[in-house]
Amino acid sequence: MKPELMKRMVKGPDGLEFEVEPLRDYYCEAAPTVMPGAYIKIVEDLFNWARSESIWILGFGTGCGAIEMRPLMTPRFDAYRYGVQWRPTPRQANLFIISGYLSVKTLKRAIRSYEQMQSPKYVIGLGSCTINGGMYWDSYNTIKRLDDYLPVDLYIAGCMPRPEALLAGFEDLKKIIRAGKGEGANQYAANFDWYKANQKKVIHDWDMPDYNW
């Protein structure tokens, strides 16, 4: 663990000494819980429809696939007309696109970003690398199966898939959400220990709390 994350005594500017424990002070360690939908079905259906028509993507590109997302904002493909937008902060995002290969170093950041997103949230695996490693199948430093570490709702296969494939993927994701099957956040909460064990198996310098919302 890094020295700045250790529990230690600090002397303040007014001369008072106090104890600092960064992992406890900066983060919350409460594990995620399964969150049921609205009690009345028609309300939940309305919410699911709204969620499907207003997909906000976290602006976080993990691999070479990130370059395929940019054309979607431009006049040629213009994903905004389908209710798809990019948000710069995980708090406001609903969809996390793992765009291509995911190195172990990035996986750590991806997990933190995913956990800061608010439920319900969705994950798309973009490109073959997220399915079976793709061309990085024998790399020592990338993960091979994204589904072991984060609950994936949808894969878009290819190396690389073109922006049109992404647009088609959004339409499929909309169908999944509208059918009430986009419950990745609850799946993550229900199988929390399994996901954490998998993540810790590959991330050796684990210097953050188990869950940080």
Binding site: M35, G37, L46, F47, A50, R51, E53, Y80, R81, Q118
Partner: peptide, 19 residues
Amino acid sequence: GIPVWQNYIDLIKNYGQRS
């Protein structure tokens, strides 16, 4: 650009977030 009714949908979605 976005559909004219997009703001309504965004609003419903954000009020309907679970956590």
